[in-house]
């Protein structure tokens, strides 16, 4: 009776997991970047791992029901079967290779940004997302947290010519052109944060004292949210910014209207906004 109940429970659990996944009641946020490979690999993994989960659990359920204790029953004295064990090991190893091979193949793409991406700087502080776009020259000027002043939150070196035409956007939003690979170079003024837009899939920590980077290509116009994915203090859950993906010409128009570093910041350091 109890054995039957447990076996049925296991079957129901397996069914529940299967149905929840197959119906996609809760599923990925709609993809808006080039990283379809991540979604596909998750699905492949779910299928392979799900198969293992289902088979093993059904086997356990059957065993519990069929071989539970009853009068006169004696267990089968079964100590070893190296051949069976090695077969299972090879079989598992094959599954691992099936998961790893595509995983590492696509990982190589993740860590190798394409040539001449559009570079944007992400700057974080508790609890705000800010961005800096290269200006006309297409180069981000040097910046360091040590140059920080209230008027110069990015710590840009305002003397450097490359910096003067940079376009800062304190507090965002992050405007991006559709269809062009974007490389985010990310710095933090204070603590660890992590850049995460669920629709873009990619995620990377932002570490004070170093520059981290990630790349993706936006494939859908629209407004998305960038959220912090590394616990960064009491305001962590409120560290939500906006990403706006627009057509390239609209992006150019937007960028031109923005004040540059030279306009927002006097080289003499006179603090004014």
């Amino acid at each position: 009776m109890q054995a039957l109940a447990l076996a049925v429970t296991l079957v129901v659990m397996v069914l529940g997991a299967f149905i929840l996944t197959a119906l996609r009641v809760w599923w990925f946020a709609p993809l808006a970047s080039n990283w379809a490979s991540m979604d596909n690999l998750i699905i492949i993994s779910l299928v392979l791992c799900g198969a293992a989960f289902i088979i093993i659990n059904l086997f356990i359920a059957y065993t519990l029901y069929a071989h539970h204790s009853e009068r006169g029953r004696k267990a089968f004295f079964f100590v070893d079967n190296p051949r069976l064990e090695w077969n299972l090991i090879w079989f598992t190893g094959l599954g691992i290779v099936l998961l790893l091979a595509p995983g590492l193949y696509f990982y190589a793409q993740v860590i190798n940004p394409p040539k001449s991406p559009y570079v944007v700087e992400v700057l974080t502080q508790q609890w705000l997302w800010s961005y800096r776009y290269p200006g006309k020259d297409g180069v981000l000027g040097p910046a360091d947290v040590k140059n920080y002043t209230a008027a110069n939150p990015f710590g840009v070196n305002a003397e450097a010519p490359a910096s003067r035409d940079d376009v800062p956007a304190l507090g965002g939003p992050l405007y991006l052109p559709l269809g062009r690979p974007v490389l985010l170079r990310m710095r933090s003024n204070d603590v660890l944060h992590s850049f995460y837009v669920p629709e873009f899939r990619m995620k990377m920590d932002i570490v004070p004292g170093m520059v981290t980077q990630m790349w993706f290509t936006p494939t859908k116009t629209g407004t998305f949210q960038v959220i912090c994915a590394e616990l960064c203090g009491v305001g962590h859950y409120n560290m939500v910014g906006q990403v706006v993906v627009v057509e390239p010409d609209e992006f150019e128009r937007w960028l031109e209207q923005r004040p540059t570093v030279a306009q927002t910041l006097q080289p003499t350091g006179n603090a004014q906004r």
Partner: peptide
């Protein structure tokens, strides 16, 4: 995952045709 899987297989095979007292 391989040694971990080995453990699961072997537990399951231990149950198999046992005299299972629940």
């Amino acid at each position: 995952a391989i040694p971990s899987a080995v453990k699961v297989y072997n537990w399951v095979l231990t149950l198999w045709r046992g005299n299972i007292h629940l």
